[in-house]
Nucleic acid binder design. Structure first.
Lengths: 133, 133
DNA sequence: CAGCATCCAGCTTGATACTG
DNA sequence: CAGTATCAAGCTGGATGCTG
């Protein structure tokens, strides 16, 4: 697939998100994607059932939540605990790895939330200068 | 702009990404989105010109890079420095706020890269169990 | 309750062509 | 070099209906 040899020294680093074909880019997207980030953030506060999660992550559809959960479970970040009762009860919780990632992620999220005033101010200035034309 | 008074004690944090309408969700997506995250990561190492950035972020199209840079500049995370020379030269660099965000982001990226073996192992196990059916 | 299957509107994206 | 404009295609994601 790669016919060029320009990347001969990139092998020192096993994974590099900047490389198009690196699997870490996919995982990073699962983690940081719109619903992935919010799902991990929600589960960081404690385990939740499917519909609890759905309510917590405002705006997510059943389909997207299901899809997101599968991706995160497959990557080993979320554990799915199903009880064969009736009605069924399924709890989702973070794995140790998922918890570490979620910790960093929520740190980022809270930081961004805390600086939103700056962001909004910057936007106004930008729009006043260029957007207005 | 806020005429209600229910916010007086409702919160410690004025912005909440979990709320669908919160502007922080949009900014978080600019930051963590596929191209936003990689662009911030690339600029975290130093200022770059447009085409340098394009080469660094493997796979980004001209259009997407342009669009991403506009969003990040508007949010006050990236500064655009244009010199009216011929040929033109434009440098992009992080603002102080952008630098703080990029630091957290690259921390997350590097952590994920460092744990990719675990992720890949988890995937194999998942696929062997469920994906194979 | 906890999902999966299907359909399809529309937004995102990439390719291409053009400008300053 | 550093972009903008345009257009087609494809993927994302929402709505709906159904199962265990």
């Amino acid at each position: 697939m790669d016919t060029t040899q320009e990347r001969t020294e990139a092998q020192d680093l096993p994974y590099d998100v900047f490389a198009k074909a690196c699997p870490s880019r996919g995982t990073l997207e699962h983690v940081t994607g719109r619903w992935g980030a919010l799902t991990l953030g929600a589960l960081h506060e404690g385990s939740l059932r499917f519909n609890e999660l759905r309510r917590r992550v405002d705006g997510v559809s059943e389909k997207m939540l299901s899809q997101t959960l599968h991706a995160l479970e497959r990557d080993g970040l979320v554990h799915r605990e199903a009880q064969p009762t009736n009605p069924p009860r399924v709890d989702y919780e973070l794995t140790p790895l998922g918890r570490e990632i979620a910790t960093r992620l929520t740190g980022l999220i809270q930081f961004v939330e805390g600086r939103m005033d700056d962001v909004l101010t910057a936007r106004e200035r930008y729009d006043a200068t260029r957007g207005a034309r």
